[in-house]
Write a protein that binds this DNA or RNA. Structure first.
Length: 498
RNA sequence: UCCUCGGUAGCUCAGUGGCAGAGCAAUCGGCUGUUAACCGAUCGGUCGUAGGUUCGAAUCCUACCCGGGGAGCCA
């Protein structure tokens, strides 16, 4: 079978393509069919005098997303989508699709989400899923090439160790079970068996968060390494992200183009070292005069942009009256875009004082809010690694800094361009007695962690690991503004179908 | 849970107290090369739901439902 992706190998040959009609245009004796076969798009030209009567009638019957088998000659043509087009000799319809809901025009989010099963066929969604696939492939390649063993942590868990509020509950015969929110503790057990392991599976959080960064069901990659300290952990995380991005840049040029992704910052992420700053340094940065100045500058920039957009809008509104139809549509679109951008600016202008307040009054010991993270990353083009957080805001299993007991040897990787935390990890506490103390400090019952404590009882070693959120990574690499487009069927608050 | 914006034709939206509108889709017709094709015509309505104010409500008021964006929390 020939796929559109490989058409260049079949120039001037007659081939048969099977697929769906993505869009079509017609004139009296000519049909332009945009064929979609899953591997790409190809324009197929049907000339009335070039095909049989049956084939011509078949062309006339076509609707968007009708399934077809098309035979024709592959011809190079600049005017076509992929650089090649098919001069059709035979057209056979498998099924005529009636009233396909997603038209080539724009649609609202809710409508598209209701039709997610069909939306997946659209170009941008197709490209995003290809990038997701390339990321997953790169992740496995990276770890497999380095001797890591993929091992799966359970999805049902029996106890709600770290608080129940954000866990999904389910019945488990006569007991209660919870859906996992991290495989990390199991990862540690598996690392003690295999040295280097990674888990790759779904996780669930019942958080009532309706934001562009949240799903209730998402995929995490959690490597866990015996004999790794915090620095080795950070090195691995940085090399890992660089490997994944390089791989996506190499393999997904076309997809990133469809997504209109500006790749300059991704390229920098591959070539430049990630800044590593301690939590304490990050707090100083937030509270600095430079930060205040940067925020003031942001306000001025936004105001200026708003003014310019308003002027442009007045200009083109004047033009609209005597504009031709196509120009009118163009103007309407631009007015809509300007309106959306102005809304965004106004929201920023409302928010910046809060950001400023939050940053400048940041107290050592607090956890970063979303705006603090964004402000920190705005100073760099690459992701940054923030390490050594106050132990109080971090999990019980994290090792304390031997040089300062108030600090945990934790690390977060913050992606640039506002994509936020994509990695969270730490060196783990390896000492049995210390770990028991931590459990008590966190009011956690020792008995349910008995198996976990056994890892320190029997051949405890220094070890570290981290977790990467797949969907946030996909969103970042694709330049998408919402994680709902990074997974085939997103599960989020208020969305369980399709 | 809170703040904020929204719900009008299959879709995207305009309409802010006085006859329910446009573009796209669909249907029919026209056009030899189109790129979200274009041109002409036709079809298409429980204005989210319930109540209220008014001579008159898509428009004003109240409550509720649903959705977007954000906060908190988080990857």
């Amino acid at each position: 079978m020939v796929y559109i992706r490989n058409l260049a190998d079949h120039e001037d040959q007659e081939v048969t393509l099977k697929g769906w009609i993505y869009n079509f245009r017609s004139s009296k004796n000519l049909y332009f069919l945009e064929l979609r076969d899953g591997s790409g798009l190809c324009q197929c030209v049907v000339a009335k005098d070039g095909v049989s009567e049956e084939s011509w009638e078949a062309a006339e019957s076509l609707r968007q997303e009708s399934s077809v088998v098309i035979t024709g000659t592959v011809v190079e043509d600049e005017r076509s989508v992929g650089g090649y087009e098919l001069q059709v000799s035979k057209l056979e319809v498998l099924q005529v699709a009636e009233d396909y809901p997603i038209t080539p025009k724009e649609h609202g989010v809710d409508f598209l989400m209701e039709n997610r099963h069909l939306w997946l066929r659209s170009q941008r969604q197709w490209a995003a899923m290809r990038v997701r696939n390339a990321i997953i492939y790169a992740i496995h390649t990276f770890y497999q090439e380095r001797g890591f063993v993929q091992m799966d942590a359970p999805i049902f868990t029996g106890n709600a160790a770290e608080g129940t509020t954000n866990l999904f509950e389910t019945e488990y015969f006569d007991d209660q079970a919870y859906l996992t929110q991290s495989g990390q503790l199991y990862g540690e057990a598996m690392a003690m068996a295999h040295g280097l392991i990674y888990t790759f599976g779904p996780t669930f959080r019942a958080e009532k968060s309706k934001t562009r960064r949240h799903l209730t069901e998402f995929w995490m990659i959690e490597p866990e390494m015996a004999f790794y300290d915090l620095v080795m952990n950070m090195n691995l995380a940085e090399n890992f992200i660089k490997f994944v991005i390089k791989s996506v840049l190499d393999r997904c040029e076309k997809e990133l183009e469809i997504l209109e992704r500006d790749t300059t910052k991704l390229e920098k992420t591959v070539s430049e070292e990630f800044p590593r700053i301690s939590y304490t340094e990050a707090v100083e940065t937030l509270r600095s005069d430079e930060m205040a100045a940067m925020l003031d500058q942001m306000v001025d920039d936004r105001k200026q942009e708003k003014k310019e957009l308003r002027e442009e809008r007045e200009e083109i509104k004047k033009e609209r009256g005597q504009a031709k139809k196509w120009r009118k549509a163009q103007i309407d679109q631009r007015i809509k875009d300007i309106g959306a951008r102005i809304d965004q600016i106004e929201e920023d202008l409302r928010n910046i004082p809060d950001w400023r307040e939050s940053a400048l009054n940041f107290e050592w010991g607090e956890d970063f809010g979303g705006s603090d993270e964004t402000l920190l990353t705005m100073q760099y083009d690459t992701p940054i690694l923030v390490h050594r957080f106050p132990a109080e805001i971090k999990a019980f299993y994290m090792k304390r800094d031997p040089e300062d007991e108030k600090l945990a040897l934790a690390v977060d990787m913050l992606a640039p361009e506002g994509y936020g935390e994509i990695i969270g990890g730490s060196e783990r506490e390896a000492d049995l007695e210390t770990l028991k103390e931590r459990l008590h400090e966190h009011d956690l019952p020792e008995d349910v962690f008995q198996w976990y404590l056994d890892l320190r009882q029997y051949g405890s070693v220094p070890h570290s690991g981290f977790g990467l959120g797949l969907e946030r990574t996909v969103a970042w690499l694709c330049g998408l503004d919402h994680v709902r487009e990074t997974i085939p069927f997103p599960r989020m608050m208020g969305r369980l179908t399709p």
